[in-house]
């Protein structure tokens, strides 16, 4: 299944790997921050609600 990449396999692989890693990092950052802020806000609101 893997296509023949010829002499530039390392470069193509590196480009895809770097992009994948950066995008994964970005998405993880957004999701983690979203979860942390949402939890903190929920906690705060339930505390105030009492």
């Amino acid at each position: 299944m893997m296509p023949e990449l010829g002499p530039y396999a390392a470069e193509v692989g590196l480009a895809y790997a770097a992009t994948g890693a950066l995008l994964a990092g970005l998405i993880a950052y957004v999701l983690i921050r979203a979860r942390r802020v949402r939890r903190a806000l929920d906690e705060l609101e339930s505390r105030r609600g009492k």
């Binding site: 990449l5 010829g6 002499p7 530039y8 396999a9 470069e11 193509v12 480009a15 895809y16 992009t19």
Partner: peptide, 9 residues
Amino acid sequence: GSTVKIVFL
């Protein structure tokens, strides 16, 4: 060569 595939990113 195959480096053309980098264009998609």
